[in-house]
């Protein structure tokens, strides 16, 4: 690799505070560890995201393809100030969220992907992302847009986000909304869960390996395997 040219291609990064891992007890009683990953863990994540690119249901294809590209860009040093948080149960990947710092004060929420469904994993991970921007990156506001009706309903309405007229979110042309510090702290008791510190044995287990299911299982987890003529 021509590192001289590479240095030109790599964008400079703002310093970013780490996200302190936490643990959330889900409805099943299972413990979900929420923790940041580093670049070395991206390849395994990409493997888990790849099957979602083909899933039309609930716009998984759009979210999956864009998340894949964002993480790849981050791994290869083509995106500034990006981070990714994952949710793991017993090491198994159940969801991922990512975002980045547009500037010191403004955060950008990128994508939220839940692989296991029906357990509010998307809601927990999205809340963790907001927590990261406001409480740990100490940002003033987070810009958010929605690419699926589910996301729109859940984020925009649940958090009473503020619509930003004339502001372009970097994901494209859809309406841009923002979460301010004030709104975050108002909604926090209702929406942000988890406890810290994450018990070391749970964290070690999660860090040791991100376990992912095979393509068929992931597709079935998201779409279900049922049909009128099956069984």
């Amino acid at each position: 690799m021509d590192m001289e040219l590479e240095q030109i291609l790599r964008p400079p990064e703002l310093p970013m505070n780490p996200y302190p891992p936490k643990v959330i007890t889900l409805a099943t009683g299972n413990k979900m560890v929420v923790r940041p990953i580093d670049r070395s863990e991206v390849p395994v994540l990409l493997k888990a995201i790849k099957p979602t690119i083909k899933i039309e249901r609930d716009f998984y294809d759009v979210v999956g393809a864009r998340l894949y590209a964002e993480l790849l860009g981050w791994m290869k040093h083509r995106v500034r100030n990006e981070y990714c948080l994952v949710g793991q149960i017993d090491g198994v990947l159940v969801g991922a969220v990512n975002g980045r710092m547009l500037s010191k004060k403004i955060g950008i929420s990128l994508h939220t992907l839940a692989i296991e469904r029906g357990l509010r994993i998307g809601a927990h991970l999205f809340a963790s992302k907001m927590e990261h921007h406001i409480e740990h990156l100490n940002q003033h506001e987070v810009w958010i847009t929605a690419e699926s009706p589910l996301g729109f309903r859940r984020w925009m309405i649940e958090y009473s986000l503020i619509k930003q007229e004339g502001v372009q979110h970097e994901l494209g042309g859809a309406e841009s909304f923002k979460l301010t510090r004030e709104l975050y702290y108002k909604n926090k008791p209702r929406l942000v869960c988890g406890s810290r510190p994450c018990p070391p044995e749970l964290l070690e287990h999660a860090k040791k390996e991100i376990i992912i299911a095979d393509e068929k299982t992931i597709t079935e987890q998201i779409c279900g395997a049922k049909g009128a003529w099956k069984i």
């Binding site: 007890t25 889900l26 099943t28 009683g29 029906g118 209702r190 929406l191 869960c193 406890s195």
Partner: peptide, 22 residues
């Protein structure tokens, strides 16, 4: 439709139930 075991802890007892079982 639903084939998932749920727990009293996750639904009621943990503070995280505010989102799990909103």
């Amino acid at each position: 439709h639903i084939q998932m075991k749920i727990s009293m802890e996750g639904m009621i007892e943990t503070p995280d139930s505010i989102v799990n079982n909103s």
